[in-house]
Design a protein around this nucleic acid. Sequence first.
DNA 1: ACTCACAATAGCATTTATGTTATCATAAAA
DNA 2: TTTTATGATAACATAAATGCTATTGTGAGT
Lengths: 91, 91
Amino acid sequence: MKTWNDYKEYVKSVDSEAQKDIEEIENIASIVGTLIEKRNSLGLSQRELASMCGIPQSSVAKIESFKTIPNLDTLLKIMKPLGLKLTVSTV
Amino acid sequence: MKTWNDYKEYVKSVDSEAQKDIEEIENIASIVGTLIEKRNSLGLSQRELASMCGIPQSSVAKIESFKTIPNLDTLLKIMKPLGLKLTVSTV
DNA sequence: ACTCACAATAGCATTTATGTTATCATAAAA
DNA sequence: TTTTATGATAACATAAATGCTATTGTGAGT
């Protein structure tokens, strides 16, 4: 069983430019992962959350399952009822 | 001369559901505004920043002038060379 | 077995962001 | 006055997200 790190190292060995793409993927995964955890910790189903956001359940599912990368406005719509906010800070 | 707050109050008086839309707009404006300030403080032109991101200058301009709301991945591409990161936190 | 809630997915239309290239208006500098 | 750099914008094609509706597979509970 290969781990995510195994794939990461492989991709970087094949494509030296992959580093920043990988960082971006992990960044997105981290943000979306936080959404999922928060939704679960609040005991909300995708349908419930979606109706709070005013977006369809299918859109929530696509984002949570990494089928699509959300727009900033959609992301904020979802974060709002979860009590989450997006902050820009310096590295 | 009407201010942004004047328009805000007017819209809210006409549409009571407008509150969260307004918050979302201000949230996006805050994030994009930070990008603009940071780019300027670094003395970078849109063209220079765009080439660092691997995206066209027109895309940067459209986002900075609020012609489009960026995707999460595009936003992260732009933030990277500016030394900015996106953080999810609880309200 | 049956029901129920759930996440995932499918098909389709529509909207929107993105890429590409080029141009425009402006202001600053030569 | 004539470059030069800059941000904004235009037109078009393509890619992608979203909305809408419905369905599927799965697991929990009855």
